[in-house]
């Protein structure tokens, strides 16, 4: 996978976190994995079609997901209920859409499939590539991962 894919998702995540949550996001590291497995409690999977195709996985610890939605709603959230997971799904959708706009500037035309939220860890997802890049990100309210498994048409 080319660096411009990864950077587009990193920059889009940074932008959306700043705009929607007033949070700075920094990169802790990056690793390569040969399977796409949610390793946090709150996960959003988004499919990508077009010049690039595959899957994106946003993986958040429960306490962080609840805090993200608390910041948006201005009220405490107790459970990963349909309200919280829907807001998380939409936020991941916005980040992905923003990243695809950036990729369009590099002449990749892609669309996204509506988000699917998965609660819990362990369930392996199918990958478009033999390996995926996992971006490890840090904010003041917790650390999370964005996994990118995309292949060129």
């Amino acid at each position: 996978m080319k660096a411009e894919y990864i950077n587009a998702f990193y920059l889009a995540t940074q932008d959306v976190f700043k705009l929607m949550l007033d949070l700075e996001t920094t990169r802790l590291g990056m690793r390569v994995t040969d399977e796409l497995v949610p390793f946090r409690e709150a996960n959003v999977v988004i499919g990508v079609t077009g010049d690039l195709s595959g899957s994106l996985l946003y993986s958040f610890p429960k306490h962080m997901a609840l805090e993200m939605v608390r910041i948006m709603a201005g009220m405490e959230m107790k459970e990963l209920d349909a309200f919280v997971t829907s807001a998380m799904g939409e936020m991941a959708n916005i980040i992905s859409g923003n990243a695809l706009t950036r990729l369009f500037e590099h002449n990749y035309r892609c669309d996204i499939v509506p988000p699917q939220v998965m609660i819990g860890t362990g369930q392996s997802l199918s990958m478009a590539t033999p390996s995926a890049i996992v971006l490890q990100l840090q904010t003041a309210i917790g650390n999370f991962e964005v996994s990118i498994s995309l292949r060129t048409k």
Binding site: M72, A82, S86, A87
Partner: peptide, 22 residues
């Protein structure tokens, strides 16, 4: 249903914040 309206509420909130903030 509670499930559907919660889902709507979550999306509406995120849409509104992103639209107005960006």
């Amino acid at each position: 249903t509670e499930e559907l309206i919660q889902e709507f509420g979550g999306r509406l909130m995120a849409w509104l914040i992103m639209h107005v903030a960006a």
